[in-house]
Design a protein around this nucleic acid. Structure first.
Lengths: 206, 206
DNA sequence: GGTTTAACCGACCAATGGGTCTTATAGATA
DNA sequence: TATCTATAAGACCCATTGGTCGGTTAAACC
């Protein structure tokens, strides 16, 4: 194994385990030693690869969190079909994953936003970047839908994006404790109602 | 000042400051000393009045958090007018308060739910109780609306409740960092669209 | 075969955490 | 005035934290 490969493998192991524990227990409530113990690694190894706990976490955001967000919530809505269908299916899949997750602690991104808001500006900047990318992609999906005649042209694209992000973040919080499956079902049903209200208005029913 | 009154006054001071700091920095990231320092009180005083940090927090939930929730999000929708109007106005007011809050760290209840989920079952129970009360009140508001002819009778009351809670929790998270006022405006506008879709369907336009 | 060095070990440190315990004080009571 | 008691002070305890530092090992290179 080449040196640089071994290095990357160890860093990757640390980051994956780090995200797992940070997600589960929160950043401030997870010690570096907690992570190292589970990996049978030492302090020396950690501080050889990372400058600090904060540096470590930022690399986790860039390497794991951002990509996960992209593959789960952004890439699936990039097609040219009806965006309302794409978003519905995307949320359906993402929530289904959450339902089947044995240990669900909510929407990773929003959990961290809650934890760091007002406490660590640096980390918040990175988290907000991801949020912004999500928002931008939702907005352009809606705009595409208007252009392609799937969505009424009077619909406010940015408003829809904010509303969708809100609803998703919120339902993920609600799903963590009480009957996630039932809540998912109700949520998706209401989402479809909401989407129906923005289908193109025909001039008159023929 | 009577003894029992002095006792209650001190406890109240501690709880108010405690909620303030727990909300701002999180529970695990706020030490008992942080609270006592700001009040110029000592460890002795704290543990004279409370059994533990956890006991302290639970009393905060019961005495302050539950009441705040009630006055802001539950009581305002209890009237017999059109529930869609009541809820709209209620959210409008609650979000406006958040906008004007210099230091906004999101929706108090959902922040704590995020922090304690999977970490402290006891505290989670108390937080979920509040959530449940909110949900029940939303459901019965919608049912009242159906009964009184403000809402179409095919509407799923529980679904609407889940969707509304989700949206509110989410938008409060989104408002903490980026242009809260603009996001509030867009959110409320979409909420009204959503509500429009559940007005009673007349048999036919006359 | 000897030397260098990337990768890792683990003892150690100062600060901080929740919580305990003995002691002080001030106002009520007798 | 003397005593009692509710309230509070703050020194102390011990576990844990992020971080440092000198040392070890094994592979790569000359």
């Amino acid at each position: 194994m080449e040196k640089t490969l071994k290095r990357m493998a160890t860093m990757q192991r640390m980051q994956v385990k780090g995200l797992e524990l940070f997600y589960k227990n929160g950043y401030y409530n997870t010690s570096v030693d907690d992570i190292l113990t589970e990996l049978s690694l030492s302090k020396g190894a950690f501080y050889y690869h990372f400058d600090s706990k904060e540096d470590f976490f930022i690399q986790i955001i860039e390497n794991l969190l951002a990509r996960k967000m992209y593959s789960m919530l952004i890439e699936p809505i990039e097609g040219h079909e009806n965006p309302l269908d794409l978003i519905t299916q995307c949320f359906e899949d993402a929530l289904e994953t959450a339902v089947h997750n044995e240990l669900d602690f909510g929407f990773v991104l929003s959990n961290f936003i809650n934890e760091f808001n007002g406490r660590n500006e640096n980390i918040m900047k990175h988290l907000n970047d991801i949020l912004k990318i999500w928002e931008v992609n939702l907005v352009s999906a809606v705009q595409r839908g208007k252009f392609n005649g799937y969505i009424d042209r009077h619909v406010d694209s940015e408003g829809v994006a904010v509303f969708l992000m809100s609803a998703y973040i919120g339902v993920r919080t609600l799903m963590v404790e009480t009957s996630p499956s039932a809540r998912k079902y109700r949520f998706m049903s209401q989402l479809r109602n909401y989407f129906k209200s923005m289908e193109p208005k025909r001039n008159e029913v023929i």
